[in-house]
């Protein structure tokens, strides 16, 4: 197996709000191998963004706080690093594409300036050179007349163009790990496919590892090798992508895949809605967070929160129930 680039253990993040403490992430553990693409799926507010922001030390504090856990990048814990140390990793070795392209660019600086910035600070080149590189990167992600548009401001870009510029910015320093938070949600299908092609090509060229957060199971099928399914701040199932689609173990995953007829990258199916409401994160759950919506719910589910346990060599699941039989897991 390839060496690990990222190893997250027992990561938990909370937010102090006026109404109480929000348990956004409740002890998640996962690994990322060199050159591997890991998908993270789950419905809104299940803690996907908070997980990756925590790893990079980008949780706004206050109100947020990483309360436990570690995140080792190439053997060094990102969570205990000094500001100066992690600064050299952010944008250069681990870079991030943010969810909202509308608000993630500074409105008063030109696109060129912002895309060039990581190159300028991490590679010690002149601003002029960095701008030139930025032009090439924008062309690479398919922005027409890239050179001329360097001096545009973000409001002069469409949402899709901004999203592409954001990807260009993240790729600027050829990172080891690319964290992409729903990067194609705002784009139409053709552009989505283009972007995916670019990312796949770069991944193969640079040997870049990717964490790809999405709602779109179709994208995950065509892109990722492994998938984490998150629910209520927990990872409830983790498996290689084919295995997950073929033998989903968690009732939540089964629900998600419910309407997906087959494993097919061109089927862009959004998460189907599952009856019931997402969990309230105001208190740390003592029972299974999915129990109120689970068709297989048993007594034990209401008393004990199931841990994430190995089901198979590469397949882990956090559930007391065996969905095949509807009874307790052996």
């Amino acid at each position: 197996m390839a060496p690990k680039v990222l190893e997250v253990k027992d990561l938990a993040t909370q937010f102090k709000t006026r109404d109480g403490i929000v348990h956004a992430v409740n002890g998640v553990s996962f690994e990322l191998q060199e050159g591997e693409t890991l998908g993270i799926v789950g419905e809104s507010a299940c803690g996907k963004t908070v997980t990756v922001l925590s790893i990079l030390g980008l949780i706004p504090s206050p109100p947020g706080k990483v309360v436990s856990g570690s995140a080792h990048y190439l053997g060094k814990d990102l969570l205990t690093m000094s500001d100066e140390e992690i600064r050299f990793i952010r944008g250069a070795q681990i870079s991030m594409v943010f969810q909202d392209p509308m608000t993630s660019f500074n409105p008063v600086l030109t696109i060129g300036r912002q895309v060039a910035e990581p190159i300028e600070i991490h590679q010690g080149v002149s601003r002029k050179e960095a701008l030139e590189r930025a032009g090439e990167l924008l062309a690479l992600v398919g922005i027409p007349n890239a050179k001329e548009r360097l001096s545009d401001y973000p409001h002069q870009f469409s949402g899709g163009m901004r999203q592409r510029a954001m990807i260009a910015m993240a790729l600027a320093c050829s990172p080891t790990v690319l964290v992409a938070d729903e990067p194609t949600t705002a784009l139409d299908v053709t552009i989505q496919a283009q972007i995916l092609d670019i990312v796949k090509r770069l991944r193969d060229q640079l040997g870049m590892a990717i964490i790809w957060i999405t709602h779109d199971l179709g994208i995950i099928a065509g892109l990722a090798q492994r998938v984490n399914v998150m629910y209520g701040g927990f990872i409830v199932e983790e498996a290689p992508v084919k295995e997950l689609y073929a033998h989903p173990q968690h009732p939540y995953t089964i629900g998600l895949l419910g309407s997906l007829p087959r494993l097919d990258a061109s089927t862009h199916t959004r998460l189907v809605s599952i009856d019931g409401v997402p969990p309230v994160l105001m208190k740390k759950p003592t029972s299974c967070p999915f129990a109120p919506r689970c068709p297989f719910v048993m007594d034990r589910c209401l008393q004990e929160n199931p841990p994430l346990l190995s089901f198979d060599t590469h397949h882990r699941v956090a559930c007391w129930v065996d969905p095949k039989t509807g009874g307790a897991r052996a």
Partner: peptide
Amino acid sequence: RTARAKGLM
């Protein structure tokens, strides 16, 4: 946050 994620001082 984007600026911080780029590794800016």
